[in-house]
Design a protein around this nucleic acid. Structure first.
Lengths: 339, 339
DNA sequence: TTGAAAGCGCTAACAC
DNA sequence: GTGTTAGCGCTTTCAA
């Protein structure tokens, strides 16, 4: 069962008739070792197919060359991109990445933190669940000097590093864009209010209306669970109002595609009857007709940034850093009035 | 830097004035230890917030409780689902998962294998790159008794376990479905021929035509690079033929959505002028109009299965297992003639 | 029922 | 320039 085949320093030392320490030093290109010895060792190591045992190293240093990541669901374009960014940056510094999914469950999140702690990873990047309100499991890490960086979803009022998207500004810009297109009755299709993402984006929307001296109409703020059925119904309610909205902002993928379907079902023209723009990371927004305008997170960049910050912490820089990553607005057919 | 805070057996032993060995045994519920001692130890461990150091364990056993995974690109619905399946099964057995991306590069794949080997993971699940033809890096693992399972993309004629999709049968079934819809001029839109996925699916298509005594027309077999531009052009060429195909099978997501766009651009009715079905894992196939018929891999199940097989190998069952996972055909509007 | 000691592979402090 | 030794945290003989 146990793989006990790779050669060790001991094997090389024995073969060359020198001490283990000398081999160790030679392999580290320690200048104290004579060139001749260094070369003999290098040679032998190559021949014997030596590879350093990181575990032994880790036992001494107290940590594995591994970064732990906890996300709600890796099976989404957003989080898999974040992970991809993390992995790339980590690999450049010789760190591997262990991912765990919390499945939006607080209990699982606590388990994940414990598991990573037990594995003695060098640091953790986390995107907390929607239900996480108690952060003691993360505070415990701080006590052990295990650095943590939060990504995508920050935690409130704490001394942690984080990398988040500029939600408020993104929603503000999207609303501005619709206003510039001539829309005056702009509705917003939200997920459940308890999500921070929702409150932030809604905030940006309201600000933009204010800034442009447009009325905020409560009836234009629609809420829906995040599933196609519910979102289609919510959209239909918006579209059946006496003063029908002339634009809709959808706060995520699911809501966006559902809104599109509801608008089409109703036989309305998009964008001329109703313009549509939504927060979404999926490329398929471009392939449907009309192609859908979107606000896209720079998810990969968020991952890369979070990992860079974490590596700094691992290397001893303790000051927390809060980084905000701008979003990208992709204006396509669904939000451009033909005039 | 080093996290040197969690308490160790030594700490507990010191506090209780007993030996480390006794503590170790007590914690393992070794019946040789008196109940009183066991309880005292358990109590102290709890109080001191003891957690076992897996690394020390791993140094002895020679392997980490971690499974390594290598995929071409985790940022796809297919591979992120495979990973999700692997992770879930691994977690049940107390294993974490390290993922690495080869980015379809043979060199990176070799690096990844080496990295995982150096980390002394307990086993590896891999989906080889399109360019991998030499498998010596995997053979090296076998020599070290490091178990390997291939997933999604098998490697030829080797004594390895694998989990793959039933591509030939899937294409056969899709072709049959179109024939049942009354289609007689069925075209297939392929990616580059060097991909095994392409040759297999093409094989199923040809078999199905044969079985139904339909002619295989070479001009109906279109090749395209896997990008929207190229695929749209290839589709346009098909649609401009004197005897226009009355159905198209697209071999992946990108080809499928591009074909849809080309058919619409041409003003043809789907499915009545041209029926369309494609291999795809994305949910958005359902949201466009007409909704797109697809053949879907059971990617999550493939991951789960691969991981179960790997865990068996890790636990000492050496015989290689080849498992084939059926696909799911989702018939939607784009392939159902209205009659 | 418990303790002492060896050893997993490596590095670093301390000789010489 | 090189060797000796201790020690990271744990399990496991071997002794008592």
């Amino acid at each position: 069962m146990a793989a006990k085949n790779s050669s060790s320093l001991k094997d090389i030392a024995a073969k060359l008739g020198i001490s283990i320490a000398t081999v160790s030093r030679a392999l580290q290109d320690n200048p104290a070792i004579s060139k001749a010895t260094r070369e003999r060792v290098a040679q032998a190591a190559r021949e014997m197919n030596y590879s350093k045992n990181f575990i032994a190293d880790s036992l001494r240093s107290g940590q594995l060359p591994v970064i732990g990541v906890i996300v709600p669901h890796a099976v989404t374009l957003f989080y898999s991109s974040v992970l991809d960014g993390i992995e790339q940056v980590a690999a450049q510094d010789g760190y591997a990445v262990i991912n765990m999914n919390s499945h939006e469950s607080y209990e699982e999140e606590r388990c994940n933190v414990r598991s990573l702690q037990n594995l003695h990873v060098a640091g953790i990047i986390a995107s907390v669940t929607q239900e996480t309100e108690d952060f003691s499991h993360f505070d415990a890490l701080a006590k052990e000097h295990l650095p943590v960086v939060f990504v995508a979803r920050d935690i409130p009022t704490r001394n942690y590093s984080s990398v988040t998207a500029d939600s408020v500004e993104a929603a503000h810009r999207a609303t501005r864009h619709l206003i510039e297109q001539g829309c005056r009755r702009i509705a917003i299709l939200c997920g459940p209010n308890r999500l921070k993402m929702v409150t932030e984006r809604k905030h940006g929307y309201i600000e933009a209306l204010h800034d442009n001296r447009l009325l905020v109409r409560p009836e234009y703020v629609a809420y829906s669970d995040i599933n196609t059925q519910a979102a289609m119904q919510a959209t239909e309610r918006l579209l059946s109002m006496p003063e029908r909205p002339d634009a809709i902002i959808a706060l995520n993928d699911t809501l966006l595609f559902a809104a599109m379907k509801a608008i089409k079902n109703k036989g309305l023209d998009m964008p001329d009857d109703v313009a549509l723009i939504g927060f979404s990371d999926v490329e398929y927004a471009e392939y449907v007709s009309p192609s859908l305008s979107t606000i896209e997170d720079q998810s990969r960049l968020m991952g890369e940034t979070a990992c860079r910050i974490l590596l700094n912490h691992i290397n001893g820089s303790p000051a927390p850093v809060k980084k905000i990553i701008p979003t990208i607005q992709r204006v396509r057919e669904s939000s451009c009035k033909k005039r």
